[in-house]
Simulated assay, not measured.
Amino acid sequence: MSSTLIARYVTPWKFRREQDAQRLHAIRQRDGDDCRRCRRPMRFDLPAGHDSGPKVEIIVPATTDEEEALDNLCLCHRRCNAENADFTREVQERVRRKNEAELFSRSRRRAAKRA
């Protein structure tokens, strides 16, 4: 057995951290150190979970095999990634319907005031 195979089963958390570090390094080499969304520089010396720290983002949601491909990943700030978390198609449709309903209720109120 190779040492990486043993490390995968003996210390899976360490193996996962090393895999994530290699993926982060490969994406940094390809894209540079700027955020994909806001184009500001990222800080890689911050603790995990910091708003200005890097977060690997999936560009196009797809099946699990395609999500792990480096071509489908990019780096952005954690705060920039969180801004886009709620903009799924379902949420956008709900927001659109809510805005339309508000427009119709305003026009009915105006018509009632005029009458």
Rank of each mutant, 00 (worst) to 15 (best):
R8V: 02
A111P: 00
H50Y: 09
R37L: 09
T4E: 13
E18L: 03
A21T: 10
F87Q: 09
F104V: 05
C76A: 14
T11Y: 09
N84Q: 14
K113R: 14
E67W: 04
E102G: 09
H77V: 08
G49F: 05
T4D: 12
H25W: 01
C74E: 10
R36F: 12
V95G: 00
D31W: 02
R114P: 02
P54Y: 03
V56E: 07
L5V: 14
A101N: 07
A115D: 06
N81S: 15
D31S: 04
A85M: 05
V56R: 07
W13R: 14
E100L: 10
D31G: 02
I27N: 00
A7H: 04
R79S: 11
M42N: 05
P47R: 06
R109S: 13
I6N: 10
W13D: 13
R89M: 14
D86R: 13
L73A: 02
D71P: 02
V10E: 11
K98E: 06
T64Q: 02
I59N: 06
G49K: 10
D33L: 06
D34Y: 12
A85T: 09
E83P: 00
N84G: 07
L46D: 03
T64H: 06
V56T: 15
S52W: 06
T11V: 07
R30Q: 10
R78E: 03
E100I: 00
G53K: 03
K98S: 05
V10S: 09
V91P: 00
L46T: 10
D34H: 12
G49M: 04
P47E: 03
C35E: 06
D65Q: 14
R89I: 13
V56W: 01
R106S: 10
E102K: 15
D20Q: 11
S2T: 14
G32Y: 01
T64R: 14
L70C: 02
P41E: 10
R78N: 09
E57V: 03
R106H: 10
Q22C: 01
H25Q: 09
D45Y: 01
Q92I: 15
V95W: 02
Q92S: 11
R16Q: 12
F87D: 15
D34M: 04
R89P: 10
E66Y: 08
A101C: 05
D51E: 11
A101I: 07
G53N: 02
A69L: 15
Q19H: 03
R106T: 08
T11S: 15
T88S: 15
F87C: 11
Q19W: 01
M42A: 03
M1Q: 07
L73T: 03
S52D: 15
A101L: 07
F104I: 10
T4P: 00
T4F: 03
Q29F: 04
M1E: 09
N72S: 12
T64P: 02
T4I: 06
D86E: 05
S105Q: 15
S107N: 07
T63Y: 06
H77T: 04
A69E: 14
V60L: 13
R109L: 07
L24Q: 07
G53V: 04
C38Y: 08
V91T: 11
I59E: 07
R110C: 06
L46H: 01
R39L: 15
D33P: 00
I58N: 10
P61S: 14
M42C: 07
